[in-house]
């Protein structure tokens, strides 16, 4: 991995974080993963993540991060739940239709794991508010549905110096990459021009696959595991069950993270 997890160098030493008996039991099946241990779980408890976008990707990401015990999850979305969301946005039930996603998500996640802090933020992310919304977290997960805002959080993550976990999907496939700002390729290095904006067809299970890969990346990052999708773009296509990995590098002239 390129660099340490922020919890390694955090002023809050991980020995000040202790797990309760309930938490030891709740997380026992992941604490017993060799690279994880009690120390790994304590790092998750100390971790703060933002999920930008609470749609198909954001549902899977938020549910798995909450279940895994990430200590603070901020979930940001300004939409309300619609019937056509329910094929893929597994955070919501039919009774949530017409309610705002941020607070519906908050309620659902709290029911999954009452030990952690959840903040549902019913706001649209803009160039003006992005840094303010993200400066109190150690990682941001890009689960958005438009490139305009994806670029905004890419730039904010670079400015603050926190990793960005990018995921996107269309129809039966998707892509994932992880950005360590100013160390590995950012979204703008690789995708300088956005695709045209439209309502993308998406199979829910595929959004789930991409979202769970993102959530896995975030957990690996916080625990301090190696081999993240940094300088790598994973391209998944469920039509053929193919996974391709493209090796990336930073663009020195990148308008977002470049040095020239």
């Amino acid at each position: 991995m390129h660099g340490n997890s922020p919890t390694d160098s955090d002023s809050m030493a991980s020995d000040s974080i202790t797990l309760t008996e309930e938490e030891m039991a709740r997380y026992s099946r992941q604490i017993s993963i060799p690279e994880f241990g009690k120390a790994g779980q304590e790092k998750l408890k100390n971790a703060r993540a933002a999920v930008a976008g609470a749609g198909g990707l954001g549902s899977a990401v938020a549910i798995y991060l909450a279940a895994a015990g990430i200590g603070y999850i901020k979930i940001i979305d300004d939409d309300v739940v619609e019937l056509s969301n329910l094929n893929r946005q597994i955070l919501y039930s039919e009774s949530d239709i017409g309610r705002d996603k941020a607070h519906s998500a908050e309620k659902k996640l709290r029911a999954i794991n009452p030990n952690i802090e959840i903040a549902g933020i019913n706001k649209r992310i803009t160039e003006k508010n992005a840094v303010g919304l993200l400066k109190d977290v150690d990682a941001v997960v890009d689960c958005l549905d438009n490139f305009e805002t994806r670029y905004v959080i890419n730039d904010a993550a670079i400015e603050i110096g926190i990793p960005l976990f990018h995921g996107a999907c269309m129809e039966m496939g998707g892509q994932v990459m992880t950005v360590m700002p100013k160390r590995t390729a950012c979204l703008k290095c690789i995708f300088p021009n956005p695709p045209p904006h439209k309502k993308t067809p998406i199979l829910g299970a595929v959004a789930g696959t991409i979202g769970t890969i993102q959530a896995t990346e975030v957990i690996k990052f916080f625990v301090g595991m190696e081999s993240l999708l940094t300088n790598k773009l994973l391209i998944y296509d469920s039509r053929f069950f193919s996974y391709d990995i493209i090796e990336l590098e930073r663009n020195e002239k990148c308008p977002s993270c470049g040095v020239i």
Partner: peptide, 10 residues
Amino acid sequence: VAIFPPLEGG
């Protein structure tokens, strides 16, 4: 060679 687009959907 691989030829691909950025994906927008979430």
